[in-house]
């Protein structure tokens, strides 16, 4: 479904993404595991076309078509969406309106179902604005509900667990699994091994490139054994290059 080939991005002359290749299959939850500053969010932006990021080199193929020059809207209309790590707040836009436009004007009972799936009671949230009156965790869950409402072919979830309390985390993870059951492929960006467990495959990102891909248990263990104690700040050691 998604094929990223030899992707490169340099910002102000500094390489951020370095010859990165990645493949997300249809129906797959693919985890990207990496420490802070390794380029996880940058990959999300490049695939979504957000933040004006355009690859310096390489290709991003979605269902066989190179999408690197498409706008965010065009990519969304092809079935790709992104849940931001720190979702935007929009004064005056209610949760109801946001989920309605995300779901291409779903009926209210469908919208309510998506809120329940992320552990939110619709009666308490539908008429609230998605503004600063919501906590970071509430905003994150609404962002996930909006992705559920959209039923995308590919959902890019950038650290869906950050800012989420331990009670809500299982709900979030269930929501992602349910999204996948409904037919969405998921690119799951995280630095949490627990979150990565729900993936079918996990890739480890270091210094803007994928250094290992495998099943979650083995890859997470490798991540724990190597990356978490690695003294090379965002610079892969020679032995793992």
């Amino acid at each position: 479904m998604l094929v990223v080939e030899n992707l490169r991005l340099a910002l102000n002359g500094k390489p951020i993404i370095n010859d990165l290749s990645l493949h997300v299959g249809k129906g797959e939850i693919h985890g990207i595991l990496g420490e802070n500053g390794t380029g996880k969010t940058t990959i999300a932006y490049l695939i979504m076309g957000a933040n004006n990021y355009k690859p310096t080199a390489g290709r991003i193929l979605f269902e066989g078509q190179d999408i690197a020059n498409l706008s965010v809207s065009q990519r969304a209309k092809k079935g790709i969406t992104l849940a931001w790590q720190e979702p935007a707040r929009v004064e005056g836009l209610t949760v109801r309106d946001y989920l309605t436009l995300s779901g291409n004007h779903h009926k209210i009972n469908q919208i309510e179902r998506h809120l329940w799936m992320v552990g939110m009671e619709p009666g308490q949230y539908l008429d609230r604005d998605i503004d600063a009156t919501l906590s970071g965790g509430e905003r994150k869950r609404i962002e996930l509900a909006s992705v559920l409402a959209m039923r995308p072919k590919l959902a890019i979830l950038d650290e869906p667990d950050s800012g989420i309390d331990i009670v809500a985390l299982p709900l979030i993870l269930n929501g992602i699994v349910e999204m996948n059951r409904q037919g969405s492929s998921v690119l799951l960006i995280t630095h949490s091994e627990r979150v990565a467990e729900i993936a079918h495959r996990v890739s480890i990102l270091c210094a803007g490139t994928i250094i290992r891909t495998g099943i979650p248990s083995a890859t997470s263990q490798w991540f724990k054994d190597n990356c978490m104690i690695c003294p090379h700040i965002n610079e892969p050691a020679d032995e793992i290059k």
Partner: peptide, 22 residues
């Protein structure tokens, strides 16, 4: 804000309109 709405399938002008109306 604009890109959040665009990522849900709105065109840029539509996204700006939603934000302004809000």
């Amino acid at each position: 804000q604009i890109e959040t709405l665009m990522a849900r399938g709105l065109d840029e002008d539509e996204a700006v309109d939603v934000i302004v109306r809000g």
